[in-house]
């Protein structure tokens, strides 16, 4: 294991952590879940990382000490967990980043003791993704201004707005026959997906697929930050992204890449 202490809220696990290493992590728990449909079960601690992404630290029932598995995690409280292992895996050409408690994991309330504060400092500033000089990059500025870090849980009305956001109007009017406007089975046809390709520029070439995939995720973050109202962008495969709305390629600046949009939107049925 390493002595590194990782503040998950200030980390980008994809770049900051090394595979198969175990870490002491400090996590502010946004929520806890367990999946009732999964055998002996798991608990997931939800947090939001430095990129504004919602992520999970997983406690598996059969590999986490009971005291940790049954620990009463409170919402918005901060905890320190030791011996948390970081792994990645690839499936269907996507990379997954996993933080799992181990049999040695211990949990305590709050951040770790003071004597580790300097250590902690060192880790965060050494992380590759942060600017190492005093020159603030565009990323860092955008990061500070991004409002997504403080996330209040949405109201019922906001949830309903969101849930109905893609439902055609006639279906939502208060006729008491909400469903007359669309078929009850079959695939939804109204979702249009725009596909974008990352074209390397300035002679840059990713080393391999894995590197290309990392670049693609990084590009996804850069697009989200540089675009006014964080569009829905998903990684399809290395160097290919899809978005639910059109993105103005010329307004997006991505390190080492140019974003190449579709000639026409591809309707997916």
């Amino acid at each position: 294991m390493t002595d590194d202490i990782i503040l998950l809220e200030e980390a980008d696990v994809r770049n900051d952590l090394e595979e198969y290493q175990t870490y002491t992590v400090v996590v502010t728990v946004k929520n806890t879940y367990s999946n009732p449909d999964q055998g002996s079960g798991n608990r997931k601690l939800q947090y939001i990382d430095d990129t504004g992404t919602t992520r999970y630290l997983t406690l598996w029932a059969n590999s986490t000490p009971e005291a940790v598995y049954d620990f009463d995690f409170e919402q918005d409280a901060t905890y320190t967990l030791t011996e948390v292992q970081f792994t990645t895996n690839e499936s269907s050409r996507r990379v997954f980043y996993n933080l799992n408690a181990t049999e040695e994991t211990e949990v305590s309330h709050g951040p770790p003791e003071d004597d580790s504060a300097t250590n902690r400092q060192a880790i965060t500033s050494a992380s590759e993704d942060l600017p190492s000089t005093g020159v603030a990059t565009k990323d860092a500025v955008a990061e500070e201004q991004a409002p997504t870090h403080t996330r209040e849980s949405p109201s019922l009305d906001e949830h309903i707005d969101d849930a109905l956001s893609e439902v055609p109007d006639p279906a939502t009017t208060q006729t008491r026959h909400a469903l007359t406007a669309f078929a009850s089975t079959g695939r939804a046809g109204s979702l249009t997906v725009h596909e974008y390709e990352l074209v390397a520029v300035n002679g840059y070439l990713p080393d391999d697929d894995e590197a290309a995939l990392r670049d693609t995720y990084k590009a996804r973050r850069q697009i989200a930050r540089q675009h006014g109202d964080r569009p829905v962008v998903a990684v399809v495969e290395p160097l290919t992204l899809v978005a639910l709305e059109k993105i103005d390629e010329s307004a997006i600046d991505i390190d080492d890449f140019r974003l190449e949009g579709p000639q026409d939107a591809l309707p997916r049925l």
């Binding site: 879940y33 956001s165 997906v193």
Partner: peptide
Amino acid sequence: TECSWSDCPYPEYKR
């Protein structure tokens, strides 16, 4: 409470 419908990270699964 947990689905962010219009900002779904899995557009294909959603569809």
